[in-house]
Design a protein around this nucleic acid. Structure first.
Length: 233
DNA sequence: TTCCTGCCCC
DNA sequence: GGGGCGGGAA
């Protein structure tokens, strides 16, 4: 499996180049974006981020002070705006109450503790927490998402019902000994997830996957054979 | 119409 | 494990 996941990365990297993720101007923007993009396409999130910035609301204290209704209106384009407004404020509450409003103090926590703190926030689950850790805190924590599971399952690298933590552990253990073409593990894992997203959006789609043109095509269990399991996951 | 880098609550 | 949350783009 080690060489398999490594070879997968090499193929994606060759096809797409370094993705330079996460696209954001600040660590806070990464955190906000990670919450807003839950089950939501990124283009809709960008509209919301743009709107927040335009209202000088891409700021911890401002976000914290806004009325839930006001905040929901600002992020309306991201969908689930009422629940996400609540989640954003739950996140700002953590930073303000635990770290005196200094987001950088979260970055200095030990990885496991930072993750536990994030998971303690209502509305932040494992994927959102790992995105914040990996892309905002610069703490290596592999991100697993629906794309990861779908791609891995279709390639028979995981069981269909594999849990989040199982897939995460598989990736972290498999990729710990190599850093690909990068400087370090952090950059490697950041780019690995970005490449996965690229594959998931452009090739390994829910319906009508484009296996023939996919950079991972040769890593299919039976190369060249069209998978019957093109739906679900 | 479907789909989108989830998560919580029942 | 099932339902609810949701606007925007294809």
């Amino acid at each position: 499996m080690e060489s398999l996941l490594l070879r997968a990365y090499q193929r994606m990297y060759r096809a797409f180049g370094h993705q330079h993720w996460w696209p954001a101007e600040s660590a806070l923007e990464v955190c906000v974006g990670a919450i807003l993009t839950q089950n939501t396409s990124w283009t809709n999130v960008e509209l919301a981020l743009c709107n927040l910035r335009h209202h000088q609301a891409l700021d911890l204290a401002v976000l914290h002070s806004l009325e839930p209704k006001q905040l929901a209106n600002l992020i309306r384009s991201a969908g689930y705006h009422n629940v996400k407004a609540r989640r954003l404020k739950a996140f700002t509450s953590l930073i303000i109450e635990t770290f005196d409003g200094q987001l950088e103090l979260l970055f200095q926590e030990e990885g496991a503790r930072a993750r536990a703190l994030l998971l303690g926030v209502n509305g932040i689950g494992p994927e959102t927490a790992d995105c914040i850790l990996l892309y905002a805190c610069s703490i290596p924590s592999f991100v697993v998402d629906t794309y990861t599971k779908r791609i891995f399952f279709r390639h028979s690298w995981i069981n269909e019902r594999a849990s989040y933590d199982e897939v995460k552990q598989l990736c972290e253990e498999s990729l710990s000994d190599s850093i690909g073409p990068h400087e370090n593990r952090l950059e490697y894992w950041q780019d690995y997830h970005a490449q996965i997203v690229r594959i998931g959006k452009e090739f390994c789609r829910p319906k009508n996957p484009r296996c023939e043109a996919c950079p991972l095509n040769e890593l299919l269990p039976e190369s060249g054979v069209k998978l019957s399991r093109s739906l679900s996951v």
